[in-house]
């Protein structure tokens, strides 16, 4: 699972990034990651970017709604909730364990 990727050795991690393409939707609760790219419809991508989700920005999944969707992110000192459908189109690099 994506949540374990931080334990992978570097080579495996590269393979993982290229093949598995982890997204925000794959992150475990509480896990931090860095945004790689956003591939939603233009207006949604633009809105997400204008709200501060840009390649290189650090995000963290802080909560999952009681029914499993949407999820709540922590980004640039505020909380934003998005549906899994959108989150799945935001590619990330999970942060290594601190």
């Amino acid at each position: 699972m994506a949540g374990n990727s931080k334990r992978f050795a570097n080579e495996k991690e590269i393979h993982y990034q290229l093949v598995m393409k982890p997204s925000l939707a794959d992150l475990a609760l509480g896990q931090a990651a860095e945004i790689v790219s956003i591939d939603c419809d233009r207006s949604i991508s633009r809105r997400l970017m204008e709200m501060g989700l840009i390649p290189g920005t650090e995000v963290r999944v802080v909560r999952v709604a009681p029914l499993g969707d949407p999820i709540e992110l922590r980004v640039r000192d505020y909380a934003l909730s998005v549906r899994r459908a959108e989150a799945a189109r935001i590619a990330v690099v999970p942060a290594r364990a601190a």
Partner: peptide
């Protein structure tokens, strides 16, 4: 139209 997206700030 596009299904409503859910991008909501949790103040």
């Amino acid at each position: 139209g596009p299904a409503p997206t859910f991008m909501l700030e949790m103040p």
